[in-house]
Design a protein around this nucleic acid. Structure first.
Length: 809
DNA sequence: AGCACGCCGACT
DNA sequence: GTCGGCGTGCTC
C-alpha cells in the first residue's frame, strides 16, 4: 500500500505538519508529489498538497485520499523544497508558502450548504423552508440565514430532527479555460454549392454563410465570431447549418493573451558598448560553466543594463533553458513589457497585478506547461514553475517592494538565490542605486560586482540644482514652488516641453490643526493624523481607510480657526491651476489610478503630449521614459528623510536619483530642481551630484555606528491587542525570553510602542533584535510563536515576526 | 478551521 | 440533579 504525506489546507500552526493518507489503488499509477488532493480531515473535506509518497506510515487507521485534483503536479520538486525552506526561514505555515507560489484560482473555495435528508417530513412540517431550499440548492448557509431570517427557527428545528444537515461543499476547481468556437466543413466547394442551391428560398442568411465558405481559399476552420462579424448576421443560421450536418463546430482551448491586440515590433540585439560587453562576459561565463554566482550590476540610469539582460537571456534560450526577470510592480509598465515581448515574442509570459485572475492563471500555465521560456513579472514571479532555470534577473534590486509584508514575509532576492543554487545558475541583481546590503556584499566579494558607470551615447546626466526652501521663506515666498522652479516651469510651457513634478504625499494636506488650541484632527481608530481630501471634502485615514467630513469647528475648543498644514498632490494640483492656468496637468497617485487601466491611460496621455506637467507620487519615479521631459522638480526632497526608519536616508537618495533620471532621456538636455528644507543632508547632496559612492561610504558609517544592516541583522516582533496592558505585559515577557535565549552579542531593543501606536483600535508594541550570529534565533522565535496562541476567539493577541524587516512601523 | 470532550453556574 | 457555557485539544 502506498501512503501520501499531505499538507492540509488549514492555515494555522497546529495543522502545519504533514498528515498521512492511504492512496487508493486507482490513483496509484499517476499520483505524484506536488499534486493537490481532496482529503477527509476530521469531519470535513479539505484540499491538500502532496509532499511525498511513501511505502509505510507510523499511523494506523489511515483515511484514504478522496480525490486527486490535478492531472499533473502544480508544484515541482524544487518548489516543494523551496516551500519547506521558506516556511522555516520566515516562520510561517507551509501552506502559506505554497499558496504564495500558485495563482489565486487554484485556491480552495469552501462553502457550507444545506442538504435535505428527509424530503417528505420536511414537506409536511416546514413546507416554506423546503420551497426555499429547492429553489436555491447550493446557497451558502450564512447567506441563507441572512436572506431568510424568519426561517431560522424552522432551520434549527429541522436540523434537530435530522430532516436537514449542513455539509461542506468544495468548489475545488475554479479554473476556467477560455475556449474559442470554430466552424469548419468537411464538404468540398462543389458539394457546398449543391447544398446551397437546394436550400429553401427563404434561407438567405444560410446561403450567405455557405457562400462565405465557398469563397474561402481552403477548408480552414474559421472563428465563429469572425463569420458573424463579416456577414453581420446572428448565430442562428450557422446553428441550422451545423444541425443539418453541412458545417461542423469545434471548440479549442486557448490561453488568454492580454497582449493579443497589441502590435509589438520585434527587435534584435543591439551592438554593445565595450562597457556592456565587459558586463555581459562574466555572466555568460557563469551560464556556460553552469555555476551559481550572484552578480550585482551597478549601472547608472541610461547605461543600457536592460540590453545586457536581454542578451544574457538570449544565450539562455539558445541553450534550451529558461529565465525569470523581476521588475518592481510600478515599473512593470507597457514600455518595459514591450522590450521583452519585442525581443522574445511568444517566449515571454508576463505576470503582474493588472491581469485578471484567469489571465494570471494562463500566463502561469504557459510557464508550467513549457510553452514559454521567459517570465517577466513582479515579486511573486520569482516562483515561476520553470524546471530548467538558467538565469534570474532582479532589476531595481534595491526596491522595497521585493519584500512581501504579509506571510510568507520573504524577500524575492533570497528566493532567487535559493533557486539559483538549486539550478546552478547565475542571479543578476541590477540597480543604479544598489541597496547597502547588496553593495556591501559585492565589496566583500560575496557577490560579483559589475560596474556600468557611463551612459550609452555619452549623454550626460541631468544638471541638478538644489533650492533651500528656508531661504525662499526668508525672501517672503510662501508658495510651494521656489522662484527657480516656477520660472523654469514657465519656460518649459513656452518651449512646449514637458515637466515632471514629484511629491511623495497624496491627498490635499498632511494634517488639520486648530490655530486656537493646537488640536490636530486624528483618526479615532489609529494614532495618526487625518489627511484632508479636498475634492470629497473629507478627512481620510491612510492607514485604516476611516473617513469623516471636514469639521467646520474644532472638535476640542469649538473654535473656527481650523487650518490645514503640509502639502499633498491634490493641493499642488490646485495651486498649479492658480499660478499657471494655461498648463495642462495630469495628476497620478493612488487616488487617480484606482480603476484598472487608468494608470496606463494617464501615462499614455502624457506620452502623447496631452499634458504639460505630470504631477505624482512614488509611482511616477520609475521606469518612465518620455523624451520630451526636460525638467524634473522635486517639491519636498526631505519629506521622507525624517521618518522613523533607519533606511530613510537610503530611500531618499534612491528616490532622488530615480526621479532625476526622468529628465533628459533623449536629445534634449535635462534639468532637475530639488527643493528641500535640509539642503545640507548628505543623501540630498550626494544625490544631486549623482555620487553613489560617497553616499554609500557616509551611510555605511551611520549603519556601523548604530548597529544596523548590513553590519547587523534585524528581527522585529510586533504585538497588537485591543487592550494596552495585555500588549505591554506580553511584549515584556517576550523580551525576557529573548534576553535569556540569545547570546550576549545580540541586542534586544524595547519593547516600545510602535511608530504608529494604534491602528484600527489595536495597540501596537514592538521588540527589535539586532544580531550578527544567532544560530538559536529561529528556533527561539518559533517557540515564542507557539507559546502565545494568536488569533483565538478568547484572546485577541496578534504576534507578527518579521526577519529582515523593511517596514519599521 | 471545525468539532468533541470536559469541567463549573442557573434552571425544570 | 441536568442543560449549557466556552476553554482545550485533536484531526492522518
Amino acid at each position: 500500500m502506498m501512503i501520501a504525506k499531505v499538507i492540509v489546507d488549514i492555515p494555522v500552526k497546529e495543522t502545519d505538519r504533514p498528515f498521512d493518507y492511504k492512496i487508493p489503488l486507482e490513483f496509484e499509477s499517476f499520483i505524484q508529489p506536488g499534486m493537490r488532493v481532496l482529503v477527509p480531515f476530521g469531519p470535513m473535506k479539505r484540499l491538500g498538497f502532496i509532499l511525498s509518497i511513501e511505502k509505510q506510515s507510523e499511523i494506523k487507521n489511515l483515511k484514504a485520499i478522496s480525490q486527486v485534483i490535478d492531472p499533473t503536479p502544480v508544484l515541482t520538486t524544487e518548489l516543494l523544497s523551496l516551500g519547506k525552506w521558506l516556511s522555516a526561514e520566515t516562520l510561517c505555515p507551509r501552506l502559506f508558502a505554497f499558496s504564495a507560489m500558485l495563482p489565486a484560482v487554484l485556491k480552495g473555495n469552501y462553502k457550507k450548504i444545506v442538504r435535505i435528508n428527509d424530503k417528505e417530513s420536511l414537506a409536511r412540517d416546514y413546507p416554506t423552508l423546503l420551497d426555499i431550499l429547492l429553489n436555491k440548492p447550493e446557497m451558502e448557509w450564512t447567506e441563507l440565514l441572512k436572506k431568510e431570517p424568519q426561517q431560522s427557527d424552522s432551520l434549527n428545528a429541522a436540523m434537530k430532527k435530522g430532516y436537514i444537515s449542513i455539509i461542506q461543499w468544495i468548489k475545488n476547481d475554479r479554473r476556467t479555460y477560455k475556449r474559442i468556437r470554430y466552424i469548419t466543413t468537411a464538404l468540398s466547394k462543389d458539394e457546398l454549392m449543391d447544398v446551397s442551391s437546394k436550400l429553401d428560398k427563404r434561407s438567405l442568411k444560410q446561403k450567405q454563410v455557405l457562400e462565405y465558405f465557398i469563397n474561402q481559399e481552403s477548408h480552414l476552420k474559421v472563428e465563429i465570431t469572425e463569420i458573424l462579424k463579416r456577414l453581420n448576421i446572428g448565430p442562428s443560421s450557422i446553428k441550422q447549418l451545423v444541425k443539418k450536418g453541412y458545417l461542423v463546430e469545434t471548440t479549442e482551448e486557448v490561453y488568454r493573451d492580454p497582449y493579443a491586440d497589441k502590435e509589438i515590433e520585434r527587435t534584435t540585439s543591439l551592438p554593445l558598448t565595450t562597457t556592456q560587453k565587459n558586463a555581459l562576459a562574466p555572466i555568460q561565463e557563469s551560464i556556460r560553466s553552469q555555476t551559481h554566482e550572484v552578480f550585482l550590476c551597478h549601472g547608472v540610469t541610461g547605461s543600457g543594463k536592460t540590453e545586457v539582460y536581454l542578451q544574457a537571456i538570449e544565450k539562455i534560450l539558445n541553450m534550451g533553458k529558461e529565465a525569470i526577470v523581476l521588475v518592481p510592480e510600478i515599473a512593470l509598465t507597457p514600455q518595459m513589457v514591450h522590450r521583452f515581448k519585442g525581443r522574445f515574442g511568444d517566449e515571454v509570459a508576463v505576470l503582474h497585478s493588472g491581469l485578471s485572475q484567469g489571465e494570471k492563471y494562463d500566463e502561469w500555465r504557459k510557464v508550467l506547461e513549457g510553452t514559454v521560456h521567459v517570465a517577466v513579472g513582479a515579486r511573486s514571479a520569482i516562483f515561476a514553475p520553470f524546471k530548467n532555470l538558467g538565469l534570474i534577473v532582479i532589476d531595481e534590486e534595491h526596491e522595497t517592494s521585493y519584500k512581501q509584508e504579509e506571510q510568507p514575509r520573504y524577500h524575492a532576492r533570497d528566493v532567487a538565490i535559493f533557486r539559483g543554487k538549486y539550478h546552478q545558475c547565475p542571479v543578476v541583481l541590477g540597480s543604479a542605486t544598489p541597496s547597502l546590503e547588496s553593495y556591501a556584499r559585492a565589496k566583500k566579494g560575496v557577490y560579483h560586482l559589475i560596474q556600468l558607470l557611463e551612459r550609452v551615447n555619452q549623454r550626460s546626466l541631468p544638471e541638478v540644482q538644489m533650492v533651500d526652501m528656508r531661504e525662499e521663506l526668508r525672501a517672503n515666498n510662501h508658495s510651494m514652488f521656489s522662484k527657480q522652479l516656477f520660472e523654469k516651469l514657465q519656460d518649459r510651457l513656452e518651449k512646449k516641453e514637458q515637466s515632471v513634478l514629484f511629491l511623495n504625499r497624496r491627498g490635499y494636506s498632511t494634517f488639520v490643526m486648530c490655530r486656537d488650541c493646537g488640536y490636530v484632527v486624528q483618526c479615532p481608530h489609529c494614532d495618526i493624523s487625518l489627511t484632508y481630501h479636498r475634492k470629497q471634502g473629507m478627512l481620510k485615514c491612510h492607514y485604516c481607510g476611516h473617513q469623516e467630513p471636514y469639521p467646520s469647528r474644532c472638535p476640542e475648543c469649538m473654535g473656527s480657526h481650523l487650518r490645514y498644514f503640509g502639502t499633498g498632490t491634490q493641493r499642488v494640483e490646485e495651486e498649479l491651476t492658480k499660478v499657471l492656468p494655461e498648463a495642462r496637468v495630469i495628476r497620478m497617485d493612488v487616488d487617480t489610478t484606482q480603476r484598472k487601466g487608468s494608470h496606463e491611460k494617464l501615462l499614455t496621455a502624457f506620452g502623447e503630449g496631452k499634458a504639460d506637467i505630470l504631477l505624482g507620487t512614488q509611482m511616477i519615479a520609475k521606469g518612465l521614459d518620455f523624451p520630451k521631459v526636460t525638467l524634473v522638480g522635486v517639491l519636498a526632497a526631505d519629506a521622507m528623510l525624517h521618518l522613523p526608519d533607519f533606511r530613510s536616508s537610503e530611500k531618499t537618495f534612491q528616490l532622488l536619483t530615480q526621479v532625476s533620471g526622468r529628465a533628459g532621456r533623449d536629445k534634449l538636455p535635462g534639468e532637475v530642481i530639488i527643493q528641500s528644507y535640509s539642503t545640507e543632508h548628505y543623501s540630498i547632496i550626494h544625490a544631486s551630484n549623482h555620487d553613489y559612492q560617497s553616499f554609500y561610504d557616509q551611510e555605511m558609517q551611520m549603519r556601523y555606528r548604530h548597529h544596523y544592516p548590513p553590519f547587523y541583522y534585524l528581527a522585529m516582533i510586533t504585538l497588537s491587542h485591543t487592550q494596552v496592558t495585555k500588549v505591554v505585559d506580553t511584549a515584556e515577557k517576550i523580551a525576557d525570553h529573548l534576553k535569556k535565549g540569545l547570546s550576549s552579542g545580540a541586542q534586544i531593543l524595547g519593547p516600545t510602542s510602535s511608530a504608529i501606536p494604534r491602528i484600527k483600535d489595536r495597540y501596537r508594541y514592538q521588540c527589535m533584535v539586532k544580531y550578527k550570529r544567532e544560530p538559536n534565533l529561529l528556533s527561539l522565535l518559533k517557540r515564542i510563536q507557539e507559546h502565545y496562541p494568536t488569533g483565538t476567539k478568547n484572546d485577541d493577541l496578534k504576534i507578527t515576526i518579521d526577519l529582515n524587516p523593511f517596514l519599521m512601523m
